[in-house]
């Protein structure tokens, strides 16, 4: 393992991800507003929001909220840093799951009914996403013989050639992971979702700012995973990431009333049909390709 590029990757991620993530969130809100014939907030609104939240009074329903959301932020950032340092993909996935566990615990601890339901539904979101994230790691291993992101990046043939099904399933699950759909789970900024902010409904001030910041880190990490499929062709990779993100916004606006039950079923069917089938075919015919 090369130490210097690894440290560099991690540091760049830790600094640049919140900036990029915030910008992306700003663009997202403008595009969404235009799709709904609204004007939308200024591009830098997400940063203004965070700055404002940071200076609010410290108020909470349960003192452990602060430490739990800090854990969510730090572990999400750590997962992303490890990913961009080129370390073990599977452990990155596990670290991300650990981070989310803390977010859920924070929502539980708030002890309000809306927050509790939000926590339960966030938990369902984790459960839905878990299989494809594991299959993602395994799929990359089957193609490149390693879990190390740095070595996957150096693969001769982009992994998308072998893992189109896994890619599609991951893309489907991204609607959930990017907090787009379903409307009764997510915590994004859309007007039609404000009543059901679920998991964050009890957070305020710094606590909420930390969750928001962690979400930016996570967005960049997930887009990094999409990019990993196109290792070796950075231009195509970038285009796919941008188009992909736009499509997620579009999907979100086309299906504003998808419920969590529908989400669980449809995403697991997608995982089974695309992801599992892809892995099994790769397992049986791996030698032939």
């Amino acid at each position: 393992m090369n130490v210097i590029p690894a440290i560099l990757g991690a540091v760049i991620f830790l600094i640049a991800a919140p900036l990029l993530g915030g910008l992306l969130s700003g663009i997202d809100r403008i595009i969404t507003a235009r799709m709904q014939s609204r004007r939308g907030p200024p591009l830098l609104q997400p940063f203004y929001d965070i700055a404002k939240l940071w200076h609010k009074e410290k108020v909470f329903a349960n003192p452990v909220e602060g430490i739990f959301t800090a854990a969510y932020l730090i572990l999400t950032a750590a997962a992303g840093a490890m990913f961009f340092a080129g370390l073990n993909l599977l452990l990155v996935v596990f670290c991300l799951a650990l981070a989310h566990t803390f977010l859920i615990l924070a929502a539980y601890a708030a002890n309000a009914p809306y927050s509790h339901i939000g926590a339960e539904r966030e938990l369902i979101a984790i459960m839905v996403a878990e299989p494809i994230l594991i299959l993602l790691g395994v799929g990359f291993f089957m193609v490149t013989g390693t879990f190390l992101v740095s070595e996957i990046m150096g693969a001769a043939v982009p992994a998308i050639c072998y893992l189109p099904g896994v890619f599609l399933a991951l893309f489907a699950v991204l609607t959930l992971k990017l907090r787009k759909s379903p409307f009764d789970i997510s915590t994004s900024h859309h007007a039609h979702q404000e009543l059901v902010k679920g998991v964050t409904s009890s957070f305020a001030g710094k606590t909420l700012a930390k969750v928001e910041l962690a979400h930016w880190y996570e967005t960049i990490l997930l887009l990094g995973m999409i990019f990993l499929f196109f290792a070796g062709c950075p231009v195509i990779g970038l285009i796919v990431v941008i188009v992909g993100y736009f499509l997620e916004i579009l999907i979100d606006n086309i299906f504003p009333r998808v419920t969590w039950q529908m989400t669980v079923k449809s995403l697991w069917i997608a995982t089974l049909v695309f992801g599992v089938l892809n892995i099994i075919l790769l397992g049986f015919f791996g030698g032939l390709i």
Binding site: E57, K58, V59, F60, A61, N62, P63, G66, I67, A110, N111, A112, P113, Y114, S115, L195, S201, S202
Partner: peptide, 14 residues
Amino acid sequence: VGSKSGRIVKPYLN
């Protein structure tokens, strides 16, 4: 050991 400052409020019931 962290700071315990801050105001505890009742759970938020929307």
